[in-house]
Design a protein around this nucleic acid. Structure first.
Length: 348
DNA sequence: TACCCGTGGCA
DNA sequence: TTGCCAAGGGT
């Protein structure tokens, strides 16, 4: 099978099997000349970074309803956007999202630039996002390489070099298939194939439009690609979260702008360390003096460490805290929402 | 370059 | 239960 035949097969498959996604202009409409809104394409691409479609979708609908244009988003307050992002994770994306929206509003007249190079210069635009927005929103023949495309290429060509070292080789293989014809559909076809057929586990090779081209399938174990270097073990840390209530309100803090959960509202915490905390030690380290009572603990897993958070609760008052009604706790990252719910529960 | 940075679903 | 996994970017 020639590369041109492979392309024809995959694009035809996409025409018949494209996923219907809220940020997507499908192949039928694109054939009529309809273009996707760069703002919506960009927003979806950022939300989908390392995030599943089911998890990102409600956030996309919420954001586009509340901020229909990049100018609307650029004019919003930081805290509102960070609160709306809460629960989606990787909060640097939200900080960069705002920085990018404001750069587009200020430096580009509210219009996304239409070259890969100038997109790449915007905050939060790495190689992937610049290529994806360029292809999907502007039909530029860019090389869009995400985890899906890496997996598809590694199987099609039975690439033995483990990731991440194999990225260069996989990217070159993908580049050799890019043409000026339907570049936006091509990028989305590759990613849809990776997401629905050439899946990480249990690929559906009997439904694959390019199976006869696939060296990984010919070798008998397509699911073993891409090869990967083993990951380091995840360390464990221990911390204390303090739940100070004043009637219906809970005391929160704003975390520093960079680092873990940067810029997000949070419960006050101790430092997070390898050794555990006794109740006495935890109370002594509290941000304010109060009659602290141990009310349990929660477990949470981050990308590179796991955490046991001991929960101390007290009723009291203090300055320098962000007093928030219980109904406002949905502005918290998941780890603190989980901790607050557990600590405020009457079941303890 | 290697490490940092969330979350929830699933086998 | 544990580890793997999802449309990566920043530093």
């Amino acid at each position: 099978m020639t590369p041109e035949t492979l392309r024809d097969r995959l694009l035809a498959w996409y025409d018949a099997n494209a996923r219907d996604l809220p940020w997507r202009v499908g192949p039928a409409d694109r054939a009529l000349g309809v273009r996707a809104d760069p703002y919506r394409v960009w927003l979806s691409e950022v939300m989908l970074q390392q995030t599943t479609v089911p998890h990102a979708t409600p956030y996309f609908l919420k954001f586009t309803h509340r901020w229909p244009s990049v100018g609307d988003l650029a004019a919003e307050d930081d805290g509102e956007v960070m609160a709306a992002w809460a629960g989606l994770g990787y909060y640097a994306r939200a900080r960069n999202l705002l920085a990018c929206a404001r750069a587009v509003a200020r430096d580009h007249g509210g219009v996304f630039p239409d070259t890969e190079e100038r997109l790449r210069a915007l905050p939060g635009f790495g190689p992937y996002t610049a290529a994806a927005v360029g292809a999907i929103a502007f039909d530029l023949p860019t090389n869009v390489v995400d985890g899906n495309v890496e997996r598809v290429m590694s199987r099609l060509f039975a690439v033995e070099t483990p990731l991440p070292d194999g990225k260069t080789e996989l990217k070159a293989l993908a580049a050799a298939l890019v043409r000026d014809h339907r570049p936006g559909d091509w990028a989305q076809a590759l990613m849809d194939l990776g997401a629905t057929v050439c899946r990480p586990k249990a690929p559906l090779c009997d439904r694959c439009p390019v199976a006869e081209f696939c060296a990984g399938l010919a070798g008998g174990e397509p699911e073993t690609y891409p090869r990967k270097t083993p990951k380091a073990a995840r360390p464990h840390r221990n911390g204390v979260a303090y739940i100070l209530t004043r009637g219906n309100e809970v005391a929160l803090v704003r975390r520093p702008p960079k680092g873990l959960l940067g810029g997000m509202l949070a419960l006050p915490t101790s430092d997070w360390r390898a050794t555990g905390w006794s109740d006495e030690e935890a109370a002594a380290a509290a941000p304010v003096g109060a009659d602290w009572r141990a009310v349990g603990e929660v477990e949470h897993v981050f990308t590179h460490f796991s955490l046991t958070l001991r929960l101390l609760r007290a009723e009291g008052d203090a300055g320098g805290l962000i007093w928030t009604p219980r109904s406002g706790l949905d502005a918290l990252p998941s780890v603190f929402l989980k901790a607050a719910r557990a600590g405020l529960s009457n079941l303890i």
